[in-house]
Design a protein around this nucleic acid. Structure first.
Length: 274
DNA sequence: ATGATTTCCTGTAGGC
DNA sequence: TGCCTACAGGAAATCA
């Protein structure tokens, strides 16, 4: 499932291919989920030049020269791939952008269709999607700022971190990995953390995300780099997907239970409740 | 306000 | 091999 490190990898991967290029061709599928509508998005993209590509939380934002922004959220199974125009499309391609001066096409695949595409001004995108309610960017915030964003809430750690409203970009994998590394039980209330625990959590969030980006993200199931390569951070997962195995820190068995509606992996010994 | 539950979807894995 | 069911989950909507 694409989270902050995966989106960051996608942004870095497609930016050199599309920045400064004009969109000369748009293809879309009937089931493409787009705001305000697939037809409006396709029409609005044609002829526009992409001036920059950046990331906010798990949203990819391609800024155009006409004041509008193409926003892509990969949802669960979305992929953005650069492929040659002549290369046959695989199943579930929802959008393809062809550019001037290159044979490479930007293709959006999304089998499970939890992804989203939108074209509008920043203000429009913020009102149409969760983009407007995003919390701070963990990688451009200090540990103190991250700690402050988490500290006041009465919510459970797992719930708050999945919500995107306090801190943006973490999903199920990185929340579990971060909480394990900080030695915190996912059901702990945010406002119950000591100063040291908050500080440790904030530092681990940054550390995990930075390392994951360095390793090209986690490929679990669908996620691929825009060039088709897989990430390798899954090899560095300490708890995610390792239920039943031995904790890398102690002798205990890692467990998985449903918390905040998500499969949650942790060590009952290293991450004590209360 | 919070939290639990449901919805959207398809591919994959498991049982038989 | 094939059929069936359960499960995975990001974000938004719904309900208690």
């Amino acid at each position: 499932m694409p989270e902050l490190p995966e989106i960051e990898t996608v942004v870095r991967g497609i930016c050199p291919h599309v920045q400064g290029r004009t969109i000369i061709r748009v293809r879309r599928s009937k089931v493409c989920r787009a705001l305000p509508s697939a037809a409006r998005v396709a029409g609005g993209l044609k002829g526009a030049l992409i001036s920059n590509v950046r990331r906010r939380g798990k949203y990819l934002l391609a800024e155009l020269d006409n004041q509008k922004i193409l926003m892509v959220h990969l949802g669960m199974s979305g992929q953005l791939l650069m492929e040659e125009t002549g290369e046959p499309r695989r199943k579930h391609m929802h959008l393809a952008l062809g550019f001037s001066k290159t044979k490479m096409e930007l293709r959006f695949y999304d089998p499970r269709r939890f992804g989203k595409v939108a074209l509008g001004t920043l203000a429009e995108l913020e009102s149409w999607t969760g983009l407007g309610a995003l919390g701070i960017e963990p990688l451009s915030s200090s540990p103190r700022q991250i700690a402050a964003a988490i500290a006041g809430s009465s919510k459970r750690l797992k719930t708050l971190l999945l919500e995107q409203r306090a801190v943006a970009g973490l999903g199920n994998i990185y929340v579990d990995e971060t909480l394990f590394r900080a030695g915190l039980h996912p059901l702990r209330r945010c406002n119950s953390l000591t100063k040291d625990e908050l500080s440790s959590l904030a530092r681990e969030i940054k550390k995990v995300l930075r390392q994951a980006i360095k390793e090209g993200g986690s490929t679990i199931g669908d996620y691929l780099h825009p060039d088709g390569q897989i990430g390798s951070f899954q090899d560095s997962h300490l708890v995610y997907g390792r239920a039943g195995q031995t904790c890398p820190r102690c002798a205990a068995q890692l467990i998985k239970e449903s918390i905040a509606g998500r499969g949650t992996h942790f060590c009952p010994v290293c991450q004590p409740e209360l």
